[in-house]
Write a protein that binds this DNA or RNA. Structure first.
Length: 825
RNA sequence: GCGAAAGUGGCGGAACCGGUAGACGCGCUAGAUUUAGGAUCUAGUCCCGAGACUUCGGGUUGGGGGUUCGAAUCCCCCCUUUCGCACCA
């Protein structure tokens, strides 16, 4: 045999896997099915670095393991191919987004191949191609029919320099991420999906996701933000219709000394009425509207407001109270109006003090005397109600709140109400590189959906990327001008495209019938193969992507297309890889912008993909953030070289040798450990276990302490267990050892419990909890024998020092603890 | 501010259910081998103090307390770091 030539070996096996399409799955049979899924990547122009590799290597190790366990594992891959960087490349470098994206896909595919990753490419989907995004349009139209998609005016982040709308993530410290211009708030007609209708179901569904990390469930729960309380109507002194507020603390109603409306509240125009300062107030409202949300909502932001002059009646006290508007009340939460209870709410108190508004206590602390006029901190969750008639003496708690709600409801002044922090999903993007929203605007017919048989509404290729104005689509006359599908009159197309989160909300269903040109996906195949058994991806998608995917799953469930409501049974979030950055002088997430990336190409050239795979998985627990260490990679390389050398020499072992049982024990111990580790994704400890097994085998071969038969069996087991981690070198050695079928098709070894047993074993002796000696005992000895053997030891006797043994705690196979009676002192 | 997670050698990290802390690897030290090497092999490597080649004692899992025969692991307080949310009524 020759030396370990990783280049030749890796090339050979990659070619073979590709040619034989080993990962292709026939979906007609779903016996032993296991649908695993890696979050599909955005094909950015940046080459993949070893930090990205972690995801894919982890997934491939899982895939190969499942295959060897006999599962019919489906591991598809595709491209989240719409998005902003493609358009920026077009503007900056004059490449068309489509060409740029498709080129990037080719490059990334080659990189996956070089890592030795097996995907079922026959299921590939590319979201920027019409045969995919037409089904985005189809889905949108179905939602439009059911009122789940709608259009309304809404404030958006607007960059005056780029003249375009920005997503929240593109606004950094109130400025545009691209040009640094301060972002302003603008009202535009926008398309929304009514995810809020599903808030309760999305929240309840979390209960069933036992296979999801607690952290993600919690983040989703907080994001949905269910909040129970009451709606209360405040009649106006003028006799105009009442103002309705939402509160979680109806029990503090008696302390409501003023109302505050969001400046955007629909009643504001009417209420400001004949106010003498009306022009000033309107100018102020305009300023608030233009303030970016990020700035307005920051906790440190100073509150400001205006007295509208109108007066409302507190339904509990009958008192007339002023009606204000202020920027700290948000238009899209609750009813966009609050009752201010300064005595029991920090924000209201701060505002009341600032504006000289009255403060009235409902709950009076019992331990100390408090005067409303001196209050500088709100009274929260203490004291008892005073001065509120029938409620006097009640203390803070759910029951008191309930009594107030009942009382309000009986009087017709209010009612129980649940609100959510979750807002409807704004899907409009004033961008070219996305799915066109399939509607047409007609003078006569209004908003007209594009009929199904005219889908897809294709993105025109020939558009101008000047970069000066937002959406190139809007300037593409051949796209915009069309005829009304309803009446045939000239009409204009919608030029907004969809948020790319729409694409990624259902792609896992399309993988199951990627070429179906008649329907979005085949419901029959889907019901057999979905939901996804194991989803793997980064924690950065803990909220939006996963929430949208869960939402869309329920929508298609309600359409009768899938029998389940949850798309992903188990979720695993791998941590990121960090490395020291020269540029920032800190340890940071590996990224191009930080200049701390490591290229897999160089690494693979020098030490091979198997080395990168072993090292990446060995680095640390896959769910944790781990730091890449350039020097430590050689440890993985050495490991594979040692494996190669031992494989060459394993035939030199003698026909018989004394320590077969010991090597057998090491072999079965490794089998048990690796299986357990793989099940929990603990690839780092699995690698450690395999290194130990190799060490044991090396010792046995070199010291001629185990028989050839036993060494050969250990070698085979080692190759099998290591295959998911280092697939190329293991297949090569396996083949060279004369096996006919491939490792990937071999049966995963099973640990034999009986081989793990020993007749005699070493246990630890403690005296009063301190380790004093190790003794050898028979495996089946009871406490009496072990105790006697322990006392046989000089060291133990010395430490017992003649004291009486009060008791002995025996942990079978591990230790015995002799507890001495304390001398009376 | 609220919520969550995590703190173990020089470094990355092990330790299943409360039972030998530091597996495995990197680095480092010494030696061997090689024309040479950043290649390979062998031995050593938590800290302190004695003892001497195969030892012995003490300490040690961010800090302090507690439960227990026994705590990295469970409970309480504090410190630090990271992440999520952040005027949500």
């Amino acid at each position: 045999m020759s030396g370990y030539d990783h280049r030749a070996i890796e090339q050979k096996w990659q070619e073979r896997w590709e040619k034989q399409r080993v990962a292709e799955v026939d979906l007609r049979s779903a016996r032993d099915k296991y649908y695993m899924l890696m979050m599909f990547p955005y094909p950015s122009g940046d080459r993949l670095h070893v930090g990205h590799g972690r995801n894919y290597i982890l997934g491939d190790a899982l895939y190969r393991y499942l295959r060897m366990r006999g599962r019919r594992a489906l591991n598809p891959m595709g491209w989240d191919a719409f998005g902003l960087p493609a358009e920026n490349a077009a503007i900056q470098r004059g490449v068309h987004p489509r060409d740029w994206t498709l080129d990037n896909i080719k490059v990334m595919k080659r990189q996956f191949r070089r890592w030795g990753i097996l995907y079922d490419w026959s299921k590939e989907v590319t979201s920027c191609l019409p045969d995919y995004y037409r089904w985005n349009q189809w889905l949108f139209l179905r939602m439009l029919e059911r009122g789940l998609a709608y259009k309304r005016r809404a404030p958006v982040n607007w960059c005056p320099s780029c003249r375009t709308v920005l997503a929240n993530e593109q606004v950094i410290d109130g400025a545009c991420e691209r040009c640094g211009t301060e972002v302003v708030q603008r009202d535009l007609e926008q398309w929304f999906l009514r995810i809020t209708d599903y808030a309760e179901r999305l929240l309840e569904g979390l209960e069933s996701l036992a296979g999801w990390p607690e952290k993600v469930l919690l983040m989703q729960r907080n994001w949905i933000g269910r909040s129970e309380g009451a709606e209360i109507d405040f009649p106006l002194v003028s006799g105009a219709p009442p103002i309705t507020v939402f509160t979680t603390r109806p029990d503090t109603l008696h302390g409501a000394t003023f109302l505050v409306l969001a400046p955007e509240h629909p009643r504001v125009a009417e209420l400001v009425g004949e106010h003498p300062d009306r022009p000033e107030i309107e100018a102020w409202i305009e300023r608030v509207r233009k303030t970016p949300r990020i700035e307005r909502e920051g906790e440190g932001s100073a509150k400001s407001g205006r007295d509208l002059g109108a007066r409302a009646i507190n339904p509990a006290t009958g008192e007339a109270i002023p009606v204000w508007i202020a920027d700290y009340v948000l238009p899209d939460y609750g009813s966009g109006a609050i009752m201010a209870v300064p005595a029991h709410d920090a924000r209201d108190l701060a505002f009341a003090r600032q504006e000289g508004l009255p403060v009235r206590l409902v709950y009076h602390p019992t331990e100390r005397a408090v005067r409303a006029e001196d209050l500088s901190e709100p009274i929260l969750h203490e004291g008892e109600i005073r001065g509120c008639g029938e409620f006097d003496g009640a203390t803070d708690g759910p029951e008191t709140i309930h009594r107030f709600v009942e009382w309000l409801a009986a009087a017709g002044k209010g009612r129980p109400r649940v609100t959510y922090r979750l807002r409807d999903w704004l899907i409009s993007r004033q961008r070219y590189w996305g799915t066109p929203i399939p509607v047409v605007y007609c003078e006569g017919c209004g908003i007209v959906p594009v009929p199904d048989d005219r889908l897809p509404v294709e993105l025109p290729y020939e558009v101008e990327f000047s970069g000066r104005e937002g959406n190139p689509l809007a300037r593409c006359e051949s796209f915009v001008s069309t005829s009304c599908p309803a009446c045939g009159a000239p009409a204009r197309r919608e030029t907004d495209t969809m948020d790319t989160f729409v694409d990624s909300s259902w792609y896992y269903l399309r993988y199951l019938s990627p070429r179906d040109s008649a329907q979005i996906f085949d419901p029959e195949t889907t019901s057999r193969w979905a939901p996804v058994d194991q989803y793997i991806g980064g924690i950065e998608h803990a909220i939006l992507h996963l929430l949208y995917a869960r939402f869309v799953c329920r929508v298609v469930h309600d359409f009768g297309l899938v029998p389940f409501e949850e798309p992903f049974r188990n979720l695993f979030n791998q941590g990121m890889i960090t490395r020291y950055s020269e540029r920032t002088g800190r340890i940071e997430k590996m990224s191009k912008s930080k200049g701390n990336t490591v290229s897999p190409d160089t690494l693979i050239d020098e030490m091979g993909a198997d080395t990168e795979r072993v090292y990446t998985l060995f680095l640390g627990p896959p769910e944790d953030e781990v730091e890449w260490n350039d020097e430590a990679v050689t440890g993985a390389y050495r490991f594979l070289q040692r494996l190669w050398r031992v494989a060459e020499r394993v035939g030199e072992a003698p026909p018989t040798a004394p320590s077969d049982a010991e090597l057998e024990r090491a072999r079965h111990h490794a089998i048990a450990r690796v299986a357990r580790d793989f099940e929990r994704f603990k690839f780092n400890t699995a690698v450690a276990a395999l290194m130990e097994l190799l060490n044991a085998l090396t010792k046995a071969v070199e010291g001629k302490t185990a028989s050839r038969l036993c060494c050969e069996a250990t070698m085979d087991t080692l190759l099998q267990l290591l295959h998911p981690i280092a697939p190329h070198v293991t297949e090569e050695l396996w083949e060279r050892r004369g096996h006919v079928e491939t490792l990937l098709d071999s049966d995963w070894p099973v640990a034999d419990e009986s081989k793990l047993k020993r007749d005699r074993l070493q246990i630890v002796v403690q005296v009063d909890g301190k380790l004093r000696d190790r003794i050898e005992v028979d495996a089946d000895w009871g406490e009496r024998e072990v105790r006697a053997a322990a006392l046989d030891s000089d060291k133990v006797r010395e430490h017992v020092g003649g004291r009486e043994i009060a008791k002995a705690v025996l942990v079978p196979g591990r230790l015995v603890n002799l507890v001495t009676r304390k001398e009376a002192s």
